[in-house]
């Protein structure tokens, strides 16, 4: 089955070391992976297992210590600002903490306008821009008219995260990296955010890389799952394979640790 699908993003021997001497941490340790086009991939692991570091390397926000990343079959080259900009048209992100994802000194319009400009819409007439922004806000169930001229901190966490999705809607990247997009917002808004992410993926047909520590969430959203432990990928496969028949002890533990309601939640295992 894998043969038919195009590899979208892949990494080989990807490694990141922070610090040196006694401070040295091997955050990501020689990981190999291939994410296929149009797929939803989850990267699951406990705190400090290197998920965010891996995501930042994929995004080109930090440089790998070792290894290489290939995008759409070619080794990625982001050596100049121009090339980076080109790359970022294809790969975008939603971060964990909506409260710190916004520049609190800029109005909400600026966030969305940036996206229109990035898609080459700098010279569009103002009405057209407003129309685009209204459409994007409508997609995430926000009213642009109510948001315009507001500052991000005047929104709730859930609204902020939805605005992030509206941003992606405007950018239409090929790959979206969502780093724990729901862990800082309450369970009630979580369903909304997840729904919208799924709708968005269907709408613009992108590859979604979903990072989480909650394996239940990973199972719920994804086609394939990568399990990370101490910077290494210890297990990967389709979601059903990994979660219903975990091979690794670590995976089994992660599954065990999520509170259940239909099965017994075994507290004795920690």
């Amino acid at each position: 089955m894998a043969e038919e699908k195009q590899v979208c993003l892949s990494g080989k021997g990807l490694t990141k070391v922070f610090g040196f001497g006694r401070q040295r941490t091997l955050a990501v340790d020689h990981v190999d992976f291939s994410f296929y086009e149009g797929e939803i991939v989850s990267i699951v692991g406990e705190s400090g297992s290197g998920k965010t570091t891996l995501a930042k390397m994929l995004l080109g926000l930090i440089n790998p210590t070792e290894g290489e990343i290939a995008f759409q079959g070619q080794v990625r080259d982001i050596s100049s600002q121009k090339k980076r900009k080109e790359y970022w048209k294809n790969i975008q992100a939603i971060f964990q903490d909506p409260f710190s994802s916004y520049n609190i000194f800029n109005k909400i319009d600026a966030v969305l306008l940036d996206c229109i400009h990035m898609r080459g819409g700098r010279n569009l007439p103002h009405e057209k821009k407003v129309e685009l922004m209204t459409e994007a806000c409508g997609f995430v169930n926000l009213k642009f008219a109510e948001l315009t001229n507001k500052y991000p901190f005047e929104l709730s966490g859930g609204q902020m995260q939805r605005l992030m999705i509206a941003r992606i809607f405007l950018l239409k990247p090929k790959v979206l990296l969502a780093d724990e997009p729901t862990s800082m917002i309450d369970a009630c808004s979580r369903a909304t955010i997840l729904d919208m992410l799924m709708d968005l993926r269907r709408e613009i047909g992108m590859t979604l890389i979903f990072i989480t520590h909650d394996i239940g969430l990973a199972y719920f959203v994804s086609d394939s799952v990568y399990i990370m432990e101490h910077g290494k990928i210890v297990e990967h496969g389709s979601a059903d394979e990994v979660i219903l028949n975990p091979k690794e002890v670590y995976t089994r533990r992660l599954i065990n640790d999520v509170p259940k309601i239909y099965e017994e939640w075994d507290l004795s295992t920690v």
């Binding site: 900009k85 916004y102 940036d114 990035m118």
Partner: peptide, 8 residues
């Protein structure tokens, strides 16, 4: 990071 991703 987001600002970087927006190509600034």
């Amino acid at each position: 990071n987001l600002s970087k991703l927006s190509g600034h």
